[in-house]
Nucleic acid binder design. Structure first.
Lengths: 150, 150
DNA sequence: CCGTTTTAAGACAAGGATATCTTTTTTGTT
DNA sequence: AACAAAAAAGATATCCTTGTCTTAAAACGG
């Protein structure tokens, strides 16, 4: 599996916030119900994202979470980095420590190309871009329905 | 992590066999010591590879494992498929079931390109190719040393 | 000041991946 | 036939991810 469940859920939740737009706080409970994700698990994911500075959180009635700063400054790449760490973008495909151009595994040259392609793909996708895509329609963030039908 | 430890070890072991060349049986014990991989764990991995038809095994003195058929017909892609299954090459990056061109997640179009690039990279690497690379020198299959220094 | 809503934090449970150990079966050698 | 070498198979242990549950802390409204 490329991404952990933590990252899968975290990305979906962040993209959902981007689709909602604005700077209102949205409760984690609401998000978890909308996206069919375990509430308590999602809470912990947002706590990690808060520590990484990607979201703001606020307690009490009408509290919740929101994207921190501008959605145009946050990429899917940053969400994965905050939740799964840098391994996907830095480690050897065979798990060898210190696999570099000078001390390569047999797949090194080829893997770093694929790895860079993944990183670039995730880096050029900002939350703002995806939010606009979602509002334009035709995309899904959960199993059953289109985003607009959430 | 892109690949499981099972696949990481399995690929390294298969590439090692390709580097050795010939159709002699090599004992799993020897391979596990050469590559610093747990013997019992590697045994189970080879059992899976045997069931998938990628290796032959033979018991008793001078027994062991060897690549089944021609090393030019087996790719890294096939090893991953046998050990980790098809998920990496078929599933949605966000884990959504039924994520297709008609019912896409917001990353679908971009992800299938990266996914295909990975699959193609692994598909064009045959064990024979890598075996030749290893014998030519300069590559590693374990943490410390070059393959020729195994 | 009290009750409600919400995130924060911690404890715990289930499951799978990883790893180790033991026993069985097959094969070759003496 | 007896022994040794090696894979096959099964049992068990450890760890991390995933998921659930409970309690605490913060914020708001009456």
């Amino acid at each position: 599996m490329l991404l952990s469940k933590t990252s899968e859920y975290g990305i979906r939740a962040m993209l959902h916030l981007a689709g909602v737009g604005g700077d209102e706080y949205v409760s984690v409970k609401k998000i978890s119900e909308t996206l069919d994700i375990s509430f308590h698990f999602l809470t912990k994911i947002f706590q990690q994202l808060a520590k990484s500075g990607l979201i703001d959180s606020y307690r009490g009635p009408n509290g919740g979470v929101r994207i921190s700063g501008s959605a145009s400054k946050i990429t899917v790449r940053a969400v994965v980095g905050a939740l799964d760490g840098e391994d996907l973008f830095s480690k050897c495909v065979l798990g060898l420590p210190g696999c570099t151009k000078d001390h390569p595994c047999p797949l090194h040259e080829h893997w770093i190309k694929s790895r860079s392609a993944i990183e670039q793909m995730m880096s050029e996708k900002t939350l703002e871009d995806v939010g606009a895509d979602l509002r334009a329609g035709g995309y899904r963030l959960k199993a059953g329905a289109l985003w607009s039908e959430d």
